[in-house]
């Protein structure tokens, strides 16, 4: 084998093993480019500041909450809406949630409930990707929702009063 061929072969091998071949090629996965992770601060079981200083859009947030491939809140929670069938019963009902809790309290629970309750079943929708065990290659380095999507969902939840 020529030196060049060996080099190409080795490069392909390393791509194969690190999963970069898929993760680094968003077009192949159909996913948008990976955004830098915005670090957040928790105080008294709340995240008071919006993620990356973004502003949420309640209308988009509602769509994300019911989308089976995005927030999918309804998989586990009763929201309740008239036009959704088959709510889950795992989490508590979110009826009137925006009137019951402060925004910062809700934000921490959407972002990373396990940061204060390791036994929780609730997925962290904006968990530090470094804490995820064995993510699928195409999701490596990603959060479940983007910071904007999280803020949209929170914006929507705050309208549920």
């Amino acid at each position: 084998m020529h030196q060049a061929q060996i080099a190409i072969f080795a490069a392909l091998l390393s791509l194969e093993f690190t999963g970069l071949a898929t993760a680094a090629d968003p077009a192949a996965s159909g996913l948008p480019p990976i955004e830098p992770y915005c670090h957040w601060e928790q105080t008294d079981l709340m995240i008071v500041e919006p993620l990356c200083g973004l502003k949420g859009d309640a209308k988009r947030g509602r769509a994300i909450a019911t989308d089976g491939n995005r927030g999918n809140c309804v998989a586990c929670h009763n929201m309740p809406f008239g036009d959704v069938e088959g709510y889950g019963t795992i989490g508590p009902s979110l009826a009137g949630i925006g009137g019951r809790y402060p925004e910062g309290y809700i934000r921490l629970r959407v972002v990373d409930t396990k940061s204060f309750n390791p036994a929780s079943i609730m997925p962290g929708y904006y968990r530090d990707p470094g804490k995820i065990h064995r993510p699928a290659k195409i999701f490596k380095g990603r959060t479940f929702l983007t910071a904007q999507e999280v803020e949209d969902v929170i914006g929507f939840l705050m309208t549920m009063k």
Partner: peptide, 14 residues
Amino acid sequence: NTRYGLIDMSCHIC
């Protein structure tokens, strides 16, 4: 009992 993936659940939890 090990949690996996972005949803971060184990077989046990569900």
